[in-house]
Design a protein around this nucleic acid. Structure first.
Lengths: 220, 220
DNA sequence: GGTCGTATCAAACGATCGTTTGAGAATACG
DNA sequence: CGTATTCTCAAACGATCGTTTGATACGACC
């Protein structure tokens, strides 16, 4: 680890690259952001990426791992605090699922950029990247599905996964700020996101509480 | 217009390029898919893109315009058939909004690929592209918001737009097949999408019917 | 103090990118 | 038929891409 007087104004070279890559991937996409842009923004040498990460693909993976580990840990911690308790409401579980993503998008350390990167990853549809995300998400998803099943005993297991999937879609979309809704200039971004989270939780709770129905007896 | 014996196996050069571009943009993204890949897949000369469309950006725009015009027309036609009628249910309006997107994703002419392209466009967050989409979507959205307002008189106009936004997010996500839900191998893709649409409509109807709440009296 | 491993740097590598060129075929029209 | 227009084609343009190289600086350890 470098301890030279002016090796970095603040963080290490690796961290500076990760931060700059996150911001640029969010804005221009993985293919759209070049390593020259990344290294210029991070104020490091071009060769530093391949030296520290091996390749551009490995850098992309590392951008994900850093944030996803934290997000999943926080979600599971929030779930563990309420899981199995008799007073736990459906909204509480949804909150445990949604709020860590909201908080992540609020961190000043570039978390807001990462949420857009995450949404991009879904859109990329890349099989390698998808498997990597599925491994992390699948773990968390199973835990939440279990708790939802406890609170919604009349709902088929399959329906729970369907609806959790819908919530994830709406959440990803909302947190990445894709919406057509224009944030009013007098509303701070964090208030805007807070409102989005509240709407989302209430909307999702109503959707989840919907009685189950089997496709074979579909209304149309 | 070319009428030569073997100028094209089937469609015109422009149409072949549009089809190939749509498929490749869906798989590799706008920056990730090169014009050489596109022209190779379309079996046309590399220079044909710049000859017929002017540039890669113009080609991307044309890929959108071709499908969005049809999608919006179909949505508004479906809405016009039910708007204002006393027997119209909330589910019918949601159906008019969601089903054309579902149908589009089922057309054999590459509509399924376009839905993924559309999802990518949202993720891209490109301001130019976003304005282009907003012009088309905004028009349709206002019409639907009006009908939702008629069926949900207790709901604030602001809440309607919030919830429509959430539905759009879930729809985009679901139609692009981002979901973690793995389609069972014995279920045809059209059945899978049909199921997704039914779940989505029921989920969305419950969410939309939720009573209004003002942020100033938020529960947290 | 000399050696070793780590880190940074400018420079260059070959490959691929979007775009342009100019010649040549095919079609339309008088 | 002859001219004009439309379209296709191989080839090349300069720019930029991800990656590699070799030199150089610097702290750590014996």
């Amino acid at each position: 680890m470098s301890t030279s007087p002016f090796a970095s104004r603040e963080r290490t070279t690796k961290e500076r690259i990760l931060g700059a890559a996150e911001a640029l991937f969010a804005t221009h996409g993985f293919a759209g952001a070049s390593l020259r842009q990344v290294t210029a923004a991070a104020k490091v040498n071009l060769a530093a990426v391949n030296y520290h990460f091996g390749s551009k693909d490995k850098l992309i993976e590392e951008v994900f791992r850093r944030r996803l580990d934290e997000l999943n840990t926080r979600r599971l911690a929030a779930l563990a605090r309420i899981a199995g308790k008799p007073e736990t409401q459906l909204e509480d579980v949804l909150d445990a699922y949604i709020r860590p993503a909201l908080d992540l998008s609020r961190t000043d350390g570039g978390g807001a950029a990462f949420v857009r990167v995450l949404a991009r990853a879904y859109a990329e549809h890349n099989e390698t990247l998808r498997r990597f995300l599925s491994e992390n998400y699948g773990h968390v998803l199973r835990q939440f599905a279990g708790e939802f099943g406890r609170l919604l005993p009349g709902l088929a297991k399959e329906d729970i996964y369907w609806r959790l999937d819908i919530v994830t879609g709406a959440l990803t979309y909302a947190m990445a700020d894709f919406g057509i809704i224009q944030r009013k200039t007098d509303v701070a971004e964090r208030d805007h996101r807070e409102q989005a989270a509240e709407h989302l939780i209430r909307f999702a709770a109503a959707g989840m509480r919907n009685p189950s129905f089997k496709s074979s007896t579909a209304t149309r």
